[in-house]
């Protein structure tokens, strides 16, 4: 409702990343727990090699991007699918500690639900 007013036309809320209103708690938590999270340049190497992603939608590159934008909803289910196999760790050209990013993201989302962030 306020969205519609602000823009003067109706816009499907979920289509818009409202960066000014986005929730940065998850991003801040993940960055704190794994500083190398900031290094990701979205090459997709991790997502290409991912063991879990071969079977079901799970995409670390996308997850990184979404967390940075404060978009947590689409991740809730996905984030539980990583097997910690470590292939992404060997592939990442930026030296992101990928597995810990997933672990931190999963923890952050759980904490968010419990109002602990």
């Amino acid at each position: 409702m306020d969205q519609a007013n602000k823009f003067g036309f109706t816009i499907n809320r979920s289509r818009l990343i409202d960066y000014d209103r986005s929730d940065r708690k998850v991003r801040d938590y993940v960055t704190l727990m794994e500083p190398s999270f900031r290094l990701c340049f979205a090459c997709g190497g991790c997502a290409a090699t991912c063991t879990a992603g071969y079977h079901k939608s799970f995409n670390l590159r996308r997850m990184n991007t979404l967390i940075r934008r404060g978009e947590i909803e689409p991740l809730r289910e996905e984030v539980t699918r990583c097997m910690l196999c470590g292939k992404c760790l060997l592939v990442c050209p930026r030296g992101v500690n990928t597995r810990n990013v997933v672990a931190a993201a999963a923890a952050a989302i759980r904490k968010l639900d419990r109002n602990e962030l």
Partner: peptide
């Protein structure tokens, strides 16, 4: 295609098979 190729293998027809994420489509390819 925007994505870093992660690995290559060969199939039975001796053709190369590469794995990459099409990062713009958001899916592995």
């Amino acid at each position: 295609i925007r994505g870093k190729v992660s690995e290559a293998s060969v199939n039975i027809n001796n053709r190369l098979v590469i794995k990459v994420e099409d990062t713009l489509a958001g899916r592995p390819l």
